[in-house]
């Protein structure tokens, strides 16, 4: 059952050094900035962060990188016009990078959340990103074996939660949130508003509360 917390700091308490953290967001849309800030204050180090990008500007994920708490980034698109923090760390050899095609990133987390041991996907066949991976021809088409990506923690942002931890999102800020929520041992969500149970349309709930462990309202 989802627990409700008074602050972002309380919601991220207990995250340990060496954890794998799934961080929601596509650029800044859906990035759980206040939870990341709390993780930075908590000071957990040697983290592996799985997120589509590797931080924008100097805030949120970029600030966590600046603080030297991240050992490795797993992402699809680290290089952007405003990814100077990551770029500098990478060029200085101070951070590891695993580049994963965006659809594989999503599907590998989906597999983790759905209890799938691995899957054969067509993305990346014949490219450097498939090198060294097991391949198989199925019905005449070549596929690459991809393993799940599991998180110890997911930090995501949603629009609203009810008191059951059921979530709805807002526009394209949804992106990786629903998938990451399923793929971590502990899913921590910051929401713009907590509403009374019964106020969310059950037909419109995107993430059922079973996937949610901790909720904090950040207005």
């Amino acid at each position: 059952m989802a627990g409700f917390y008074d602050s972002a700091d309380a919601a991220v308490a207990g995250i340990t050094d060496g954890s794998t953290i799934l961080v929601g967001g596509f650029g800044s849309a859906g990035q759980p900035v206040e939870l990341i800030d709390a993780l930075r204050r908590l000071g957990a180090r040697d983290l592996t962060v799985v997120s589509n990008n590797a931080g924008n500007g100097d805030f949120g994920l970029a600030a966590l990188l600046t603080a030297g708490q991240v050992r490795k980034m797993v992402c699809s698109f680290p290089r952007q016009s405003d990814s100077w923090v990551f770029d500098e760390l990478y060029r200085a050899g101070k951070i590891e990078l695993e580049v994963v095609p965006q659809g594989n990133l999503a599907e590998r987390m989906r597999a983790a959340g759905a209890g799938i041991g691995a899957f054969f996907g067509p993305t990346g066949v014949g490219t450097p990103l498939a090198e060294g991976k097991e391949q198989r021809t199925i019905d005449g088409r070549q596929y690459v074996l991809e393993y799940p990506i599991r998180g110890d923690i997911a930090l995501i942002k949603a629009h609203r939660s009810d008191r059951m931890g059921n979530l709805v999102y807002r526009k394209t800020a949804r992106n990786f949130g629903p998938v990451m929520a399923t793929a971590a041992t502990t899913t921590v969500v910051q929401v713009g508003e907590i509403v009374p149970t019964g106020d969310l349309d059950p037909e419109a709930v995107v993430t059922p509360g079973i996937f949610v462990d901790r909720v904090v309202e950040i207005r």
């Binding site: 698109f77 290089r79 060029r91 990078l97 580049v99 993305t123 066949v125």
Partner: peptide, 14 residues
């Protein structure tokens, strides 16, 4: 050069 693939590989084969 910092490698960044985004969704290009998925789009290309999809």
């Amino acid at each position: 050069a910092i490698p960044a693939v985004g969704g290009a590989m998925d789009l290309a084969i999809g």
